[in-house]
Design a protein around this nucleic acid. Structure first.
Lengths: 236, 236
DNA sequence: CCTTCTTCGTGGCAATACGCAACTAACTTC
DNA sequence: GAAGTTAGTTGCGTATTGCCACGAAGAAGG
């Protein structure tokens, strides 16, 4: 026992560095992909890592605001779907000392991703997610964080409308079904799928808009105004 | 812009105090109840608050270890079901300055709860959860944390075997059904309930053990060895 | 203009699951 | 041994699901 720890004033407790790490997921080339940055500084220099940064309490009102700011500054991404995943505070996760992180998951549509190089990385790239992880070993405990994120999203897709955040503003029901199928890794029945979407009533047809090809045109849909993620009664 | 923030060494970033707050839930008197401590110190002196404490990075291997240690030290509770809920880091949540917390949820069986008075509280009590909260206004943002915990647990009960952690080591299927009903607030069909439990195969009959009363005795069950929380295919 | 090709969107069952309620079982009490 | 109470199972009408097929709507090509 150190003896004096429990008697010290609150401000004498050990204070860690606090970061936010964001697992950015999108759908590219028929599967989930995540945005990683190659670390330019020690520790783990040269390793791939999640997009993350320190919280600036003076300008970040809360944790989600910090996540969104970091998303903008480090990856040039604005206002996607952002959800807190979990905190990680293992005392050995950072060789520099005790560092805790709040992990977030962000979903963005495949389009409109402008990648800007961060000050702390010399490279940014999309990596395909195989299983619940990615090919290279990641810095810190980021492999574990990524796995937790992918598991969370896969589970949630089973009973929510979460994949709409991976879609462009207008899309067809077939498009949406493909996205569900790619995330869940299994084919779904067209008839069943459309029944579920219809009774959840979170989409609306865009009047007069159709996707045209050399076949029957498909109705375009968009998310009904004011609605965020919908929870279905049962699995989709 | 302060100008010098982004150029400082990592160790110069603002470091918050880091706490763990545990929402302890049990089933008493026919409903969910949560364990609260009356604060003996400022701020919020005299207000009720969640059981919480500072992380001791030298002795807590990770966040869950800290939660379990605090559970033991502050509430005298050992080894129940513990799950991380969410992190809260709003810069205004603590009037003393920036403090972040990792909120946990703990479920314990109604029996075997020895309440010990913590150094920082002059009173400990169980409060019934009405809706998703509790009658008194809580210290800090604990009302919000409690609401998030109750919502999480209620949702999870719909499709998991989570309520077994609120049960004694041996129990009857009728007991378990009552627990589900009390948490979800609605009656369930006996036949349906037993089918779901049977096909999930996470319970085993305790051979020869029966609950005796002035009527037909009921088979006692226990959780099968090595199993934790089960996710059902559909809602129970 | 008519045939072919492709994808869209809906409709039609057979099989399964669910909700509901009755029924039997087992044990105590009077 | 009749009454009362809770345990545990069975049966059945109805709703939901899974699966597949059919018609619709366009482009392309002869």
């Amino acid at each position: 026992m150190t003896g004096n720890r429990d008697m010290t004033a609150e401000t004498d407790f050990l204070r860690p560095l606090v970061t936010v790490d964001v697992v950015i997921l999108t759908l590219k080339d028929g599967g989930l992909q995540t945005l990683l940055m190659k670390r330019a500084a020690e520790p783990f220099r040269g390793d791939w890592a999640l997009v993350g940064g320190y919280i600036h309490p003076e300008e970040d009102d809360d944790l989600e605001a910090a996540a969104r700011r970091i998303l903008g500054v480090k990856a040039g991404i604005a206002a996607p779907y952002v959800e807190q995943l979990q905190g990680f505070g293992d005392r050995r996760r950072d060789p520099r000392g005790w560092t805790v992180t709040f992990a977030y998951v962000a979903l963005i549509a495949s389009e409109g991703m402008m990648l800007s190089k961060g000050a702390n990385a010399d490279s940014v790239a999309w990596w395909p997610v195989a299983g619940s992880g990615v090919e290279p070993a990641l810095a810190f405990d980021h492999t574990r964080i990524l796995a937790a994120a992918v598991t969370r999203i896969r589970n949630k897709v089973e009973y929510t409308s979460l994949p709409v955040h991976l879609m462009p503003p207008c899309f067809t029901l077939t498009d949406l079904q493909r996205v569900y199928e790619q995330i869940l890794g299994r084919p779904m029945d067209k008839s069943q799928f459309r029944r579920r979407i219809a009774e959840a009533e979170f989409l609306e047809a865009v009047p007069g808009e159709f996707r045209l090809a050399s076949n029957r045109p498909a109705q375009l849909y968009r998310i009904r105004a004011g609605l965020s993620t919908i929870f279905f009664d049962r699995t989709i």
